[in-house]
């Protein structure tokens, strides 16, 4: 199935959860935040939140920046 991850179309296997996706991408999930179709996914729910075909995900972290 296809999902949009951080603005890019990505093909992933069916029945993947948010936790599964982060593990697949080797992203340490302590310091990130995840949005699924514009709703925040709580860290505790990563393992139980299933991703569906066509879902839009944002995975963000803290980067350098001051103002703008």
């Amino acid at each position: 199935m296809n999902i949009t991850l951080n603005g890019e179309i990505k093909t992933v296997h069916d029945n993947i959860t948010v936790l599964g996706l982060l593990e697949l991408l080797q992203i340490q999930h302590q310091r990130v935040a995840v949005e699924l179709n514009e709703s925040i996914v709580k860290k505790d729910n990563y393992g139980s939140t299933a991703i569906k075909n066509g879902d839009i995900l944002e995975v963000v972290s803290f980067m350098g920046g001051g103002t703008v």
Binding site: L5, N6, F62
Partner: peptide
């Protein structure tokens, strides 16, 4: 210190993290 919130680089995961 103030930091911005940006998309994680999913292509180049070797990139260092500010934190």
């Amino acid at each position: 210190v103030t930091v911005s919130v940006r998309r994680v680089n999913i292509i180049d995961k070797s990139k260092e993290n500010l934190l």
